[in-house]
């Protein structure tokens, strides 16, 4: 019997090579670190984050806390904002607060 010919199909998930990005190294402690907080702008987001900030600053000796607010809770943060946060902070905290 003649061997059946296989079919060759494309994968549908993108043909360009993607650059893989790794997560930053995890911190052991927040002592002496700069903590960034990003309020995404939802109605209870700030209340929730203020509460978490007060807990974290009680537990750790955080050197500084910096706050930002997203313009739209449903859109990604602009690239320049992300870069600014990465440059200034050792850790970043965000939450939805719906």
């Amino acid at each position: 019997m003649e061997e059946q010919q296989m079919i060759e199909v494309y994968k549908p998930t993108g043909t360009l090579a993607m650059e893989s990005i790794r997560l930053s190294t995890r911190l052991d402690t927040l002592d002496g670190k700069v903590l960034g907080i990003v309020n995404n702008g939802k109605w209870n987001s700030k209340d929730l984050l203020v509460e978490i900030e007060s807990i974290l600053t009680k537990i750790f000796n955080v050197s500084e806390v910096l706050w930002w607010k997203k313009e739209s809770y449903s859109s990604p943060s602009p690239q320049d904002l992300r870069e600014e946060i990465a440059k200034k902070c050792d850790a970043v905290l965000t939450a939805i607060g719906d």
């Binding site: 059946q4 296989m6 079919i7 060759e8 199909v9 494309y10 994968k11 549908p12 998930t13 993108g14 043909t15 360009l16 090579a17």
Partner: peptide, 27 residues
């Protein structure tokens, strides 16, 4: 822009291809 090396896959036949795409969540 570099393209991926393994853009395609070989499968036995149409039926297998359809099922394979289901398994991969490509549908």
């Amino acid at each position: 822009m570099q393209t991926q090396k393994d853009q395609t896959i070989k499968l036995d036949d149409w039926k297998e291809a359809i099922e394979y795409f289901y398994e991969q969540k490509w549908t």
